[in-house]
């Protein structure tokens, strides 16, 4: 229980759909079994269509997200344009990193956090190729909600982002508050 990865808890998931991607996180911040906050988002935006979801030790989420914000801001000032690599420009694209920087390019979905096992199970059974934005929203939401209900260290609501070519939709899922 005292592994840094499971002190604060949390869950993130991302999925690919047809001409869209989705990314979602839970909202819990805990200290072992005690819930300290039920409004602690774990997804950060770095451009019009660039999102980063982080799980693990809460202090490192803040440190890493703040450092990336600084670096992206410096990039934007230096280059006088938004950070929009070719890969991000048109292609719906998701990838994951583990804590030592090993990159995981996935064609279907990425999961992370203390509810990893549950999320893999839900994603394996619910996800299918070429989901339209609304269907992708339903799929990722059901996957995340079902997964965090089986993890004591995650849950207490969720944010879901649906990223399309021309727009981003953010929705709050209330979820179980117990």
């Amino acid at each position: 229980m005292s592994s840094p990865f499971s002190i604060n808890g949390g869950a993130c998931v991302a999925m690919v759909g047809k001409d869209c991607v989705a990314i979602a996180c839970d909202l819990r911040l805990g200290l072992q079994a005690l819930t300290v906050s039920n409004n602690f988002p774990k997804i950060f935006q770095y451009g019009d269509n660039v999102f980063l979801g982080l799980t693990g030790l809460a202090t490192d989420l803040s440190t890493v997200s703040d450092l990336f914000r600084y670096k992206v801001n410096m990039y934007r000032l230096r280059e006088e344009r938004n950070i929009a690599p070719k890969t991000f420009a048109n292609l719906p694209f998701i990838c994951g990193f583990d804590s030592i920087g090993c990159i995981d390019f996935a064609a279907d979905f990425i999961v992370s956090g203390t509810a990893t096992d549950q999320l893999y199970g839900m994603c394996e059974s619910l996800w299918e190729p070429n989901l339209a934005p609304e269907d992708l929203f339903e799929t990722i939401s059901q996957a995340l909600m079902s997964a965090v209900d089986r993890d004591a260290l995650s849950g207490w609501g969720a944010y879901v982002y649906i990223i399309e070519k021309d727009k981003v939709t953010k929705r709050l899922l209330k979820g179980r508050q117990d």
Binding site: L31, V36, L57
Partner: peptide, 10 residues
């Protein structure tokens, strides 16, 4: 709220 690990929560 800040703990000794520098986790910050409003």
């Amino acid at each position: 709220w800040l703990d000794y690990l520098a986790a910050l929560a409003p």
